[in-house]
C-alpha cells in the first residue's frame, strides 16, 4: 500500500514539565484525509501531543511540521492563519459558559468568516443538526449533559469546515450508546468532509472502529503505528497488553 502524504509530522519531540519528562523523542506521521487514533495510557501525554500539533505547547526539542512547514518560528499572525485550518474538540468540550450553544457554534464564524447574520444562522443550524442538537441552540452549556456538550463542541470545531480536526478523548466518560454515536459521528464527518482527523483515545474498541491508522504511545514515544489490522496482529508485547486490557505484562500498571 502506498503511504499517503503526511499533513502533520512530529519529529523527535521532547517535552518536559518541570522534572517530569512527558514526550521523549516522539515521532509521528499523520496522513492527509485519514483518521489517526493515538492510543495510550491516561496521563501518558496524549493531549500534549495534540497541543503540540496546534502550537499551544512548544516542544523543548524537535519539530512540528504542518504541510512540511516548521510551525515553531511562526509569529502570532502566521500561527493564527495556520490555526484557522484546524478544529479542535477539547476533552470537556471547553464551550464558553457565558454563551449559549448557538453563540458557541457561531463564535468561529463571527470571528473568521464574512457571513452575514442570516448565513451564520443557517450554518449553525446545519452543524447543530449534524451532531443531533437541533433545537438546543438556546441552551447554556451548563444545561447540557456531558455527551451533548461534546457534540456541541464538535459542532463548533467543524463550523468553519477545517481541514484537520483534533479530538481529545471524544468518548471518555460517556455511556456505551453515546460512545458509539460519537464514534459514528467522527467517522461520518470525516467521510463526508474528507478531512484529516487525529483522535486521542483509550477506548480500544472505538479506535478499531474509526481508525485508518492507529499509533500507540508508550513512555513518551510512539512504539507502534499502522493500520488497525497491523496493530491487532502486532507481536509487540506492550501493544498486545494494552489492546487486550491486561493488568499483567510489560507495562507496569500499579
Amino acid at each position: 500500500m502506498a503511504q499517503p502524504e503526511a499533513i502533520i509530522e512530529l519529529r523527535d519531540i521532547h517535552k518536559s514539565f518541570g522534572a517530569q519528562k512527558v514526550l521523549d523523542g516522539l515521532s509521528l506521521l499523520v496522513p492527509r484525509g485519514r483518521i489517526t487514533v493515538i492510543i495510550g495510557r491516561s496521563g501518558g501525554g496524549k493531549s500534549v501531543i495534540l497541543k503540540h500539533m496546534i502550537g499551544l505547547i512548544k516542544p523543548d526539542r524537535g519539530q512540528v511540521l504542518v504541510d512540511g512547514q516548521d510551525i515553531r518560528p511562526l509569529d502570532d499572525r502566521e500561527i493564527n492563519q495556520l490555526r484557522k485550518r484546524f478544529g479542535m474538540l477539547f476533552q470537556d468540550a471547553a464551550l464558553f459558559d457565558s454563551m449559549t450553544v448557538f453563540e458557541n457554534v457561531a463564535f468561529p464564524l463571527r470571528e473568521h468568516s464574512r457571513f452575514n447574520e442570516k448565513k451564520i444562522r443557517e450554518v449553525v443550524e446545519e452543524k447543530l443538526g449534524l451532531v443531533g442538537l437541533t433545537g438546543h441552540g438556546d441552551k447554556m452549556p451548563s444545561q447540557l449533559s456531558g455527551g451533548m456538550r461534546k457534540r456541541a463542541g464538535l459542532a463548533r470545531a467543524i463550523a468553519l469546515e477545517p481541514e484537520i480536526i483534533l479530538f481529545d478523548e471524544p468518548t471518555t466518560g460517556l455511556d456505551p450508546l453515546m460512545t458509539d454515536a460519537i464514534n459514528r459521528l467522527i467517522k461520518n464527518t470525516q467521510a463526508k468532509l474528507g478531512i484529516t482527523a487525529v483522535v486521542i483515545s483509550h477506548d480500544i474498541q472505538g479506535a478499531f472502529q474509526v481508525a485508518h491508522q492507529i499509533a500507540m504511545l508508550h513512555q513518551g514515544r510512539i512504539i507502534a503505528s499502522g493500520s488497525p489490522e497491523a496493530i491487532r496482529d502486532s507481536d509487540d508485547a506492550v501493544v498486545q497488553q494494552f489492546i487486550h486490557g491486561r493488568a499483567e505484562g510489560p507495562i507496569e500498571v500499579l
Binding site: K51, I54, L56, D76, N80, Q81, R83, K84, F86, G87, M88, F90, Q91, D92, A94, L95, F96, D97, F107, P108, E111, H112
Partner: peptide
C-alpha cells in the same frame, strides 16, 4: 481562572482569537 482550567482559554487560542 475558570476559563483557564476548563480549557476555554486554550479554545480561544485554537480558534485563532487572542
Amino acid at each position: 481562572g475558570t476559563m483557564r482550567v476548563t480549557e476555554q482559554i486554550d479554545a480561544l487560542y485554537v480558534m485563532a482569537v487572542n
